[in-house]
Amino acid sequence: MTKSKVYFTDFKANVGDSHLMKLARLVKQAGIETIDMKDKYVAIKIHFGEPGNLAFLRPNYAKTIVDIIKDNGGKPYLTDCNTLYVGGRKNALDHIESAYTNGYSPFSTGCHILIGDGLKGADESIIPINQECVKEAKIGRAVMDSDIFISLTHFKGHESTGFGGALKNIGMGCGSRAGKFEMHSNGKPVVDEEVCKSCGMCIKQCAHDALHFNENKKAHIDVNKCAGCGRCIGACGFDAISTMDWEANDILNKKIAEYTLAVVDNKPCFHISIVCDVSPCCDCHSENDIPIIADVGMFASFDPVALDQACADACLKSPIIDGSVLSHKEHHHHDPFKDTHPDTNWEVCVEHAEKIGLGTREYEIVVVK
């Protein structure tokens, strides 16, 4: 298989040459301007960061990409989908307010924010993919309605997948709340009666007549009728519905790869990863620990698999930061992500992504000065 090109620039900057100028040169040399953007809707998938977290990407990086898209006649917007868990991004109103809190606004980035799966996380497109783990992916409609898709990823550690790279940003990030439920769970949802407010919204959303009120006037799920679609989770505004059967990390990684396929298949795509502030856990946390390794640089490619592999390989060579959680652990794997979270194996995701045709793990680094 032909090696994919992954373009790289480090964080060294001489006087008069900023990181943002280097990012612009990087993506242009990587070929972003070869995409026909004239009058096209361009989705830029980014993680706005949970309020309280300070490791997420600064909005300045997004503005650099937005400006390039506009210069090429495109109509960019920043997007992410709502979260499955309780926090500052589980519905569109809170999500946009959290983005503003963290510095993302039309005034700082030059474009608007569209939450991919709508107000309550239930506005989704069903994409048939017929893969090993997922037959139909549930992707935020505003993501799928785009003409062009660009991922702008903060590359960091992750407690379930080893690291959060381009595939994680796309696959998990673009899943609707029901889609996230499908990736995280291999079971069916249950109702916590103590939290349930008896509003009936979940019953209205169920297409299988599996939900009804019980004798306590609380929502109850008939598991024999339930299809496990997870739409009731998106419909519940009180987080009374969840799963009791979480998916194994390896299967989670495979599902993320398959959801990524649903997003990028048959659509012009381009991918950027910024490897700095490599925190041990996801930006979904409302806090962040000090980075586990030194900053590496910025990467770009048309191939998300090669991009994740190249970023991971570079991280394996980066010095461990003294005082980080990793500096206190035994290094059995000589891998910062496996050593930080020993129950994870990030290679499962890139291996499966390569297997289903998302790209190749074989790459050639092109250094951009």
Rank of each mutant, 00 (worst) to 15 (best):
T9H: 09
D10S: 15
K12L: 14
A24S: 15
I35G: 12
Y41V: 11
I46R: 00
P51F: 01
N60V: 12
Y61L: 09
K63A: 08
I65Q: 02
I65C: 00
L78S: 07
L78Q: 04
T79I: 06
L84G: 10
L84M: 08
Y85T: 02
V86T: 09
L93Y: 11
H95M: 01
S98L: 05
S105H: 12
C111F: 03
L114P: 03
I115N: 00
P128T: 09
E132D: 15
A137S: 14
D145K: 10
D145N: 10
S146G: 00
S151E: 03
T153Y: 04
G157S: 10
H158N: 14
E159Y: 09
C174D: 02
C174G: 01
S176C: 06
F181P: 08
H184V: 03
C199G: 13
I203V: 15
K204G: 13
C206G: 03
A207L: 15
H208R: 06
K218Q: 15
H220T: 14
V223R: 06
N224I: 02
K225H: 15
R231G: 01
A235F: 07
A240K: 06
I241T: 08
S242A: 06
T243F: 03
D245E: 13
N249M: 10
L252G: 03
N253Q: 05
D265T: 10
H271C: 00
C276R: 13
D277A: 04
V278N: 09
S279P: 04
C281S: 13
C281G: 05
C282T: 08
D283I: 03
I292K: 03
I293Q: 04
A294T: 11
A300W: 02
P304G: 03
L307N: 01
Q309V: 15
A310D: 04
A310K: 04
A314P: 00
C315Q: 07
P319W: 10
S324I: 06
H331E: 09
H334R: 12
H341F: 13
T344C: 05
E347Y: 12
E351F: 00
A353H: 01
K355D: 11
R361E: 06
E362I: 07
Y363Q: 08
I365Q: 02
V367N: 13
V368L: 12
